[in-house]
Design a binder for these strands. Structure first.
Length: 871
RNA sequence: GCGAGGAUGGCGGAGUUGGCAGACGCGCCAGACUUAGGAUCUGGUGGGGCAACCUGUGCGGGUUCGAGUCCCGCUCCUCGCACCA
């Protein structure tokens, strides 16, 4: 027997798959389709274990589906724009384009070495102009629809990356890419109006039943829809001046004892222009604008403006404060403070000695258990009372339940014209401008006389100039050749927008482009997109729970609205795989715990790596890297290799399928010495009515069928084989790959234990083992498939099915419990009646029951009997 | 604080509608084969006890003939959001 030479085998089959275009997508519409997609990588230089894990999971799913005869779309490409290319360009003195392309070449070779089943004809790279041209085209459509707009705003700024960041890209106050604390800058920038889709993004969660709850809840949280009320507070000094506040607690308005403005609120300047402590206030406002990127809770600070507003429900004059705990970017940037019923206001009031008024009190029975203490004359609050209760100090609403009062007060205010229902979102518009070179140029032109003018569609793409010097963070703005242009409207001198697009724009629709990657007349061919979308299974890291996955959902909805696509959601099912951990921490260069996939593939081969990664943990959990675990996977494949070779000589000539069991010139009489009466002789062929069952040996004197195992041991192995098929199929369907591999390991162990020679049963066991294992370790399985005497590719074989009748076992072990504790076991013939089981069980444990009364007997058929006994 | 998920041997992890806890693998122990074994094959391996047996799935209660699984109350861990009014 040859040694398991993984490198020879893997090379051989990768070449053959390539040569035979095994993974080319068929677009025939008569077959069901399956779109399996893994998040495409940034071409950083080399793939890492996280990629290997991500893509191995996807490959198993794709290959599994291929074995069901489904038309599988399984593409791969490159998220190729981005800052690292610029940094490399500066430090290594290569152009970002060159650097990126050479990285792609190497990483592609790494992916090929892993044996992944990609349709490389559909490969795309977002930095190619035949891709980013359509980014620009889509940008123009967004602009036409009013979904792309330019606005001056306080935007997040990363000093290190020298560019702005979207809200989603600020992680704990820091830049998502480099971790530098983000500041803010007032800049005029391009935004996508994702807020216009907030409701749809939220409501369509109902279409995402197979997304992890965690991701849905993160998105829900991020969108942050809340139903409330906008209320007008007029200045006491000038009733034409209104400060609007947003509240979800309209029921507490009679308890509003002051209002708070965010330091950035636009009315501040006007409000304090005559204030005594104007300078002091100005200083305070400036202080607040300094962002603190810290985890700690920020101390609440505020200052009185000297102004008063009128509480519209009771006419009270209440003071206007400016405080750091009121956010400018949420709601109206102003709140009404109800210290008795809001913990934040409570803390602030206590600090500054502001009055409180209780307007909701717990019902009596609740009062004792709450932290609300009420005496007859004075009340004392230890904390704000935020629970439900009964209204008081609220005029006509006294005595009402506060939940009803919320509704009633809102309606009343609407009638009075002093307030109205309002829905607010935490979600902000998506800032898409980037002050970087290596990205898609935004196709806009600024003209002195015409203003902002979009580039004409037929002028696309606006090409990135290649030979630009980008040292020192220089970008397109430093290139007069790029910047200077003519106005498409008036033909006069004009200049181009020099910002490029956020790279998340690129990745927001690439999955749609894969369905028609070479179409040069449109971003997507609607027929092909309709056929293949949505992605049936998307696989990637949870770090994109909000960013990429929210943006993509937004994009597909816009594309649907434009009429490019007929789908509302891009990804029907989502699997978020866990991280690859080593020594308790995520693999990273800075921690020095990185394992290079190349090293492991060189040492053990791709199949071993795949098996280890899939076996060590279920896909969604973190995976602890273990060299010993890799050894275990290696040993397992060697075990498979040996057992197949050991039995191959005897079963190699066997074939499944009746017409292969041909009777040559041999006498029929001899052929009829068949163990199995199911075989018939037809046209000198030995035919089994059930093709699945027939296993024949060409020209041999014996034609056998595993359906009639010769001995109990053979029968047991056959049953085990079919139970393994069942278990493996059930588990792979729900992506429990680790237990599928465990089941295959058990089958291997079982075959090793089997020491008789029923060739048909062995053939069936080995054949199915190889089929079941093939999506996981495809190269060795192809090879062993040949060793078993097949000349076809295993990819042409259907996924095996089990025969229910083959699951049958002659006897079954029944556990005997007494009072719920296992005391003995008996083996009874399968299908024994409860009476028989009960009698047998009572006999076996009779000693233990001496002097006890049997009170009850519970029987779980085929499993267990529990005897409840006592004195 | 809010939201989501989790806690099972020395380790990674299995455990269907409640029904033998610890599948499978790693590690460890022993045996066989061998000049040799860090190869391979076989057996053993939660803890305690010579044993019968006792005990055991983060903690405390409960439901049940029976709970890792269901219910109530906690603790701790991970992740996300975090003054969102």
């Amino acid at each position: 027997m040859d040694k398991y030479n993984f490198s020879e085998i893997e090379n051989k089959w990768q070449t053959r798959w390539d040569r035979d275009k095994r993974f080319e997508t068929t677009t025939s519409t008569d077959k069901p389709k399956y779109y399996c997609l893994e998040m495409f990588p940034y071409p950083s230089g080399r793939i890492h274990m996280g990629h290997v894990r991500n893509y191995t999971i996807g490959d198993v799913i794709a290959r599994y589906k291929m074995m069901h005869g489904v038309s599988v779309l399984h593409p791969m490409g490159w998220d190729a724009f981005g800052l690292p290319a610029e940094n490399a360009a500066i430090s290594k003195n290569v152009h970002p384009d060159e650097w990126t392309k050479s990285n792609i070449i190497y990483m592609k070779s790494q992916l090929k070495r892993m044996g992944f089943s990609y349709d490389w004809d559909r490969e795309l790279a977002t930095c190619n102009e035949d891709y980013y041209k359509w980014n620009q085209w889509l940008f123009l459509k967004f602009y036409e629809k009013g979904l792309a707009y330019k606005q001056e705003a306080d935007v997040n700024w990363c000093d290190k990356c020298q560019t702005v960041l979207a809200n989603e890209q600020v992680d704990g106050g820091c830049c998502w890419r480099c971790g530098t604390p983000a500041g803010t800058k007032k800049l005029s920038q391009w935004f996508f109006r994702i807020t216009a889709y907030a409701d749809r993004l939220l409501n369509d969660h109902s279409l995402l039943g197979n997304w992890p709850d965690k991701v849905l809840s993160m998105q829900k949280n991020w969108i942050g829809r809340s139903y409330g009320c906008e209320i007008d507070f007029r200045l006491a000094s000038d009733e034409n001046k209104i400060i609007k506040v947003f509240t979800t607690r309209a029921d507490t308005i009679f308890g509003a004892t002051y209002i708070v403005l965010a330091p950035q609120h636009s009315i501040v300047d006007e409000l304090i222009k005559d204030a005594e402590k104007k300078e002091q206030i100005r200083q305070f406002v400036e202080q607040c604008k300094v962002r603190v990127a810290l985890d700690e809770e920020v101390e609440k600070k505020g200052i009185f403006t000297g102004a008063f507003v009128v509480n519209p429900v009771n006419g009270e004059h209440v003071p206007v404060w400016i405080a750091n705990y009121c956010l400018a970017e949420y709601g109206t940037g102003a709140i009404m403070a109800v210290p008795a019923h809001d913990q934040r206001d409570f803390e602030f009031s206590k600090k500054y000695g502001l009055p409180m008024r209780v307007v909701i009190q717990p019902e009596l029975e609740q009062a004792q258990s709450s932290n609300y203490q009420l005496s007859t004359i004075n009340y004392q609050l230890l904390n704000a009372y935020e629970e439900q209760g009964i209204m008081l100090n609220s005029g006509a609403f006294d005595g009402m339940d506060n939940v009803e009062a919320k509704e009633a007060i809102t309606e009343w205010m609407e009638k009075q014209g002093i307030g109205r229902k309002k829905v607010n979102y935490r979600l902000r518009d998506w800032l898409v401008s980037r002050q970087r070179y290596w990205g898609t140029p935004i196709p806009m032109i600024y003209c002195e006389s015409c203003g902002i003018v979009p580039v004409k569609e037929d002028e696309l793409p606006v090409r990135l100039p290649k030979g630009l010097d980008i040292s020192g963070g220089k970008n397109l703005a430093s290139s007069p050749e790029f910047t200077n242009t003519k106005c498409p409207a008036c033909g006069g001198d004009a200049r181009r927008e020099t910002d490029t697009m956020d790279t998340f724009v690129d990745s927001s629709w690439y999955f749609a482009r894969y369905t028609s990657p070479h179409d040069d007349s449109q971003p997507v061919d609607i027929n092909l997109a309709d056929h293949f979308l949505p992605v049936d299974q998307y696989i990637g890291g949870i770090e994109h729970a909000i960013l990429h996955l929210l943006y993509s959902r937004f994009f597909i909805k816009v594309m649907a609205d434009i009429g490019l696509i007929n789908h509302q959601e891009p990804f029907a099912n989502l699997l978020t795989q866990g991280m690859v951990i080593k020594d308790g921490a995520k693999m990273s260069k800075s921690k020095g715990n990185v394992v290079d996939p190349d090293d492991i593939v060189n040492k053990y081969g791709a199949d071993t790596v795949r098996i280890f990664i899939l076996f060590a943990a279920p896909p969604e959990k973190d995976l602890e890297w273990s060299e010993q675990g890799v050894e275990g996977a290696w040993r397992f494949l060697n075990r498979v290799w040996r057992i197949v070779h050991q039995h191959a000589p005897r079963i190699r000539d066997m074939r499944v399928g009746a017409d292969l069991c041909v009777c040559p010139d041999k006498q029929l009489a001899e052929f009829l010495q068949i163990r199995n009466s199911q075989f018939e002789i037809r046209d000198s062929r030995c035919v089994c009515p059930d093709k699945q069952l027939a296993v024949g040996r060409v020209g041999a004197d014996l034609c056998v069928c595993p359906d009639k195992p010769s001995t109990p041991a053979a029968r047991a192995l056959r049953s085990f084989t079919h139970r393994t098929i069942k278990k493996a199929t059930d588990d792979i369907e729900v992506f429990h790959f680790n237990t599928v591999i465990a089941a295959c390991m058990e089958l291997v162990n079982e075959i090793y234990q089997y020491n008789e020679n029923d060739s048909a049963v062995l053939h069936e066991a080995l054949r199915n083992l190889i089929l079941l294992l093939s999506p996981f370790a495809p190269h060795i399985c192809e090879e062993l498939w040949q060793v078993l005497g097949n000349s076809t590719s295993i990819l042409d074989e259907p996924w095996p099915t089990y025969l229910p009748e083959a699951l049958h076992e002659d006897s079954v072990v029944i556990v005997i419990q007494i009072n719920g504790k296992v005391r003995d076991k008996i083996s009874v013939p399968t299908g024994s009646t409860e009476d028989v089981v009960k009698a047998e069980a009572l006999k076996v444990v009779s000693d233990r029951l001496l002097g006890q009364e049997v009170r009850k007997v519970i029987i779980v058929p085929g499993k267990l009997i529990n005897i409840v006994a006592g004195i």
